[in-house]
Design a protein around this nucleic acid. Structure first.
Lengths: 346, 346
DNA sequence: GTGACTTCCAAAAACGTTTTTGGAACTGGG
DNA sequence: CCCAGTTCCAAAAACGTTTTTGGAAGTCAC
């Protein structure tokens, strides 16, 4: 069903039908109505390929999903919800989400990947996730004049559009809570250093100490993948030290689950013998044992903010420099942490 | 950079350049080489929109992600890995994955959604996930002559392409293990009845009993969403019964986590007082307490099978009726289940 | 009644490919 | 030397839109 058939059916020219459908002002209201009615009746849908060709737009937004593990076999579950939120907002506006998969963690292939994608004019805008401290993808997108938004910030001179959670505040909150409980040897199981979120969280953690005139022990800050396995390994290495930490704050709930398992293996009761705080408020965090004290992180909701911003960006209703959304942060206290038990602490 | 510029640059006609690039035989090997070399050098990429328009293909495969919860706020984390596996296979072949989001669980809007998507000629093939017992999406895809593959089977007369895990065997295995342990009051926390996987699992569970001449108590079979919360609620309702079940098999690890929490709240020790088996072998299942006995489910790997099949389907190397992959099933024994303790059982 | 606007629609070019058709130049057999 | 067959390339149509340009008819002021 093409526009020419529809035009023929209506006894109008192709151009008039096109203009009627696309909201041009120089077509009589009555004609427009007749066209739209018949179009709906006949089930006419403009061919997106032809439209793309002519107008140069694709009605699609692209995102490339990074593999979570170095093996490339696992995708961070968080992205399901993020993308869900994004799609939820952009689809009513007529956009689709084009997801690509970055199978290997390889900077030069990554550049080629993005280049191919941008130059191939597959999408009208880009969503860049898992931002690094210095992220070449931002420069690449800017150079190609491709509208983009990042989920997570980065160190860039130029202004750009971003949505992020308040990583620094989150870990300031968590560390402060543990300090208030009397803990001093508070370990930090952070994510890979190259990611900016890890840097921000580090900063928040440090600031909790310096705020009260203390300095954390650098030896207690570990980096690793944000998985259960990594949390387990890292925590085990922590517990064989002497003195061992009395509290641990983890970059994700998953890491916290691994850490909890490691503590249990050592015969430690989490919540009294040792305190653990996670991050994400994943649904599992409420049902594990002990229920995990963690920091709220509404990924779906953030995805909706991303989607809304993307639409406004594409419609040029707003400048990239003006779209910044920082998710407010709230700690959800449960039972995996508590006051320092003095007998163990000394 | 269009093909006409490239042709001009080479002193050749547009058609010759196109034919050289697309592997036609009637262009001299030397000319072809000259063209491909220059194309690479100059960074020429055929405009996907134009190609789509002319050839009618899109080089994209579509999938619509169902929301896991009725609120539409949560996307099943499993799909991250599934899509990762799919993309991993189809991208080297030049295809992209177009993901849509189904925000609400509404059959009539769903039909319109798929219709719009298929008729709009957005993609060359469809991946249909979360199949229902009678799934209208299959008929819709077939009618539109859109190649498709399902992840999960369905009751359909006509043959079609599918990848699935052996749901029936998995729950036959799990229930048999519990029966071997001496359990008789074995509850089953299943997923929503409308999904075919739930039906197959039900069948496997039943067969474990009938295989040894027994019949399970229908009152012990409950249905709900496959989330921690649902598992928690359902399990609680089970435990206040008299007599209560001595074992529970759950449709997902997440449900099992919720069930474990409910048991703990009742003062029950999971693994001795009551046995619980999950499904999925999620990474959390190895680190929770007690470590969960569960059934292996390699979602990423299954996604790769889906991707490979899709490519072969698109290349017409294989008929839909001939692509069936049933993931073999293996039980992972851990510590959340064990022999029936007789003092409690009577 | 005339000229200048306004209103509405049509013709045609263009977007960047692929594919069909056709033909020039070369080759080899008789 | 001629003709048929082969090899290589070019011209042009087509895909289904959008957008520019232009023009016919109607309206209004003077």
């Amino acid at each position: 069903m093409s526009i020419v058939l529809l035009a023929k059916d209506l006894g109008l020219s192709v151009s008039t039908v096109s203009r009627a459908l696309n909201g041009y002002t120089d077509v009589a209201a009555q004609t427009r109505e007749r066209v739209t009615a018949r179009a709906k009746e006949i089930g006419y849908r403009p061919n997106p390929g032809a439209r793309r060709l002519k107008s140069g737009t694709t009605s699609a937004v692209g995102v490339v999903l990074p593999a979570a593990s170095s093996s490339g076999q696992v995708v961070d579950a968080m992205y399901s919800s993020l993308l869900g939120g994004v799609a939820n907002e952009i689809e009513p506006a007529g956009y689709h989400l084009l997801a690509m998969m970055q199978t290997r963690h390889d900077p030069v292939r990554e550049a080629a990947f993005y280049d191919n994608f941008i130059k191939g004019s597959w999408v009208d805008a880009l969503l860049i996730v898992r931002t690094r401290v210095h992220d070449p993808r931002i420069e690449a997108a800017r150079k190609a004049h491709m509208p983009f938004i990042t989920y997570g910030r980065t160190e860039s001179k130029e202004p750009y559009a971003w949505v992020d959670t308040d990583n620094e505040k989150a870990f300031h909150l968590a560390a402060t809570r543990l300090l208030d409980f009397g803990h001093r040897r508070i370990a930090f199981l952070n994510g890979p250093e190259e990611y900016y979120f890890a840097q921000l969280r580090h900063r928040g953690y440090i600031r909790a100490f310096t705020d009260r005139g203390m300095i954390p022990d650098p030896a207690l800050i570990l980096h690793g993948e944000v998985t259960e396995e990594s949390g387990h390994v890292l925590c085990r290495s922590l517990l064989i030290r002497n003195p061992a930490p009395t509290a641990i704050v983890c970059a994700t709930d998953a890491m916290a689950f691994g850490a909890i398992a490691a503590c249990r293996e050592r015969g430690l009761t989490v919540g009294t013998d040792i305190s653990i705080i996670g991050y994400g408020n994943s649904s599992a965090s409420a049902y594990c044992h002990p229920p995990l004290t963690t920091v709220e992180h509404q990924v779906f909701e953030n995805g909706r903010h991303v989607g809304q911003a993307l639409i406004r960006l594409l419609r040029k209703e707003i400048k990239p420099a003006d779209v910044h959304y920082l998710e407010p942060v709230v700690l959800v206290p449960r039972n995996s942490d508590g006051p320092l038990v003095v007998t163990r602490a000394v």
